[in-house]
Amino acid sequence: MTQKTHWLIDVAGAATGGSARYYRELRAYLDEHQRHDQISVIGEGSRLTPQWLLKREIAGRDAANRISLNNASFWHGPERNKTLLGNILHFAGPSDFNPLGFKPTTELKMQIPLIRQLAKRSANLIAPSSRMAEQVASSCPALADRIQVRFHPIATPEWAGTEPVRRSEVLMPIIPQPYKNLGLHALQFLEETEKSPEVQLTIPSCSDQIPELEGHPRVKFIGHQTSEELEIWWQECQAVFFPPEFEAFGYPLAEARVYGRSVIAHDNSQQRELAGNALHGYNKDRKGSLGRAVSDALQDSPNPDGKPFNPTDYFDWMLVPI
């Protein structure tokens, strides 16, 4: 019997944030390389629910190879399954949550054992950073030998490396989540740059999502932006502020490196791995460290470096049969 499709890719849950950014690169790759006849994409617009997990097993029964882009591996035919592990919360515990002051929801508590069990049904597990690979291996040692590290893909736009429109504008392109503590970090940013009134923090969300910053004269809320819309703001800014402390990847770190923009982020191995020479690191517990990082970042013009994130190299590698 002829199989219906060579590859089946599940993108359920790719509505916002890093997952949507990743899906944008996948769509562009499929269009450019005209591989739609070999690849079937399912789950667009769907949430990752138990009902969806059952539905997709039926859809994927005739696929020669299957890829899940949402942490949740297909169940049947584990030798033909690849899974992208992009949500670090599914491989975290109290020792990770407590320092962040984060209490996992009931839904997350229910997802964690399921996601970890499903991961065992995948021959290949793809982690987007060394930090994520270490987190998965630490929480689930049996998975360690299946993990491969591969940075998320990012295409280099024509405008990469151009002069920013506003050299004092800092973009914080992060969707607010409780564990990210964006309000706390942004207040520290504003405090340590108070002697530089020209420095503005631009945030692609609404003020009710980070109420601590509402009405601040140096904060500009621009509402939710798709990754395509956000490119306009990337071109305007001189630097990006990425303060989250617990992430699987951190798209803004890598995007800044690709686009030729400075990165202001915690000075640790993950940020150095992803942001490269674009990073201006700081220690949140050392007063003045963040202010110095901002000052240095606004005077820097890093060269664009898209090679580690080349989408063609990435998807050509991913779409090799197991």
Score class of each variant (00 low, 15 high):
Ile222Met: 05
Arg218Lys: 07
Asn268Phe: 03
Gln235Leu: 08
Asp267Lys: 15
Ile222Gln: 05
Gly260Ile: 02
Ile210Phe: 00
Gly250Trp: 09
Gln235Tyr: 08
His280Arg: 14
Asp208Thr: 07
Ser269Arg: 14
Ile210His: 00
Gly250Gln: 09
Gln209Trp: 06
Gly260Glu: 01
Pro252Glu: 03
Phe221Gln: 14
Ser262Cys: 12
Ile264Gln: 06
Arg272Ala: 09
Tyr259Asp: 04
Cys237Lys: 05
Ile264Thr: 03
Gln270Ala: 03
Gln271Pro: 09
Val240His: 13
Phe242Lys: 07
Gly215Pro: 15
Glu228Tyr: 06
Ser262Ala: 15
Val258Lys: 05
Glu228Cys: 04
Val240Ser: 13
Pro217Ala: 09
His224Ile: 02
Phe249Met: 02
His280Pro: 00
Glu228Ser: 11
Ala265Pro: 03
Phe242Gly: 11
Lys220Glu: 11
Gly276Lys: 09
Gly281Lys: 02
Ala256Phe: 01
Gln270Trp: 02
Pro252Lys: 02
Glu255Cys: 08
Ile264Trp: 02
Arg257Pro: 15
Ile222Trp: 01
Pro217Lys: 11
Gln271Asn: 15
Gly215Asp: 10
Gly250Thr: 04
Gly250Ser: 10
Trp233Pro: 01
Glu229Trp: 01
Arg261Ser: 11
His266Ser: 06
Gly260Cys: 02
Gly215Leu: 13
Gln271Glu: 15
Glu214Ile: 10
Pro244Trp: 01
Glu245Asp: 03
Ala248Asn: 11
Glu236Val: 07
Val219Trp: 01
Phe221Thr: 12
Trp233Arg: 05
Glu229Gln: 15
Val258Phe: 11
Arg261Gln: 12
Val263Lys: 04
Tyr251Met: 12
Pro243His: 10
His216Trp: 00
Lys220Gln: 12
Glu245Leu: 14
Ala275His: 07
Gly250Val: 06
Phe221His: 06
Pro211Val: 03
Ala275Pro: 08
Gln271Gly: 11
Ile222Thr: 05
Ala265Ile: 06
Tyr282His: 10
Gln238Arg: 14
Arg272Ile: 02
His266Gln: 12
Pro211Phe: 03
Glu247Thr: 00
Asn277Glu: 11
Glu231Ile: 13
His266Val: 12
Arg218Met: 08
Ile222Asp: 02
Glu247Phe: 06
Tyr282Trp: 08
Gln271Phe: 11
Val258Cys: 08
Leu213Asp: 05
Ala254Arg: 03
Val219Asp: 01
Val219Arg: 01
Leu253Ser: 09
Glu229Met: 09
Ala254Asn: 04
Glu229Leu: 11
Gln209His: 11
Gly223Tyr: 05
Gln238Ser: 13
Glu255Val: 07
Thr226Gly: 00
Trp234Val: 01
Ala248Gly: 15
Ser269Lys: 06
Gly215Ala: 06
Gln235His: 10
Ile222Pro: 00
Arg272Trp: 04
Leu253Gly: 07
Gly260Met: 03
Ala265Asn: 04
Phe249Thr: 07
Asp208Ala: 07
Val258Trp: 06
Arg272His: 09
Glu273Pro: 02
Pro252Phe: 04
Ala254Glu: 07
Ile222Gly: 03
Gln238Met: 08
Glu245Cys: 12
Gly223Thr: 05
Pro252Arg: 00
Cys237Asp: 05
Ala254Ile: 13
Pro217Cys: 06
Asn268Asp: 15
Arg218His: 08
Ser262Ile: 08
Arg257Lys: 06
Phe221Lys: 10
Ala278Glu: 04
Asn268Leu: 13
Ser227Met: 08
Pro217Phe: 09
Gly223Asn: 05
Glu214Arg: 14
Ala278Met: 13
Pro252Ser: 10
Leu213His: 09
Ala265His: 00
Gly223Lys: 05
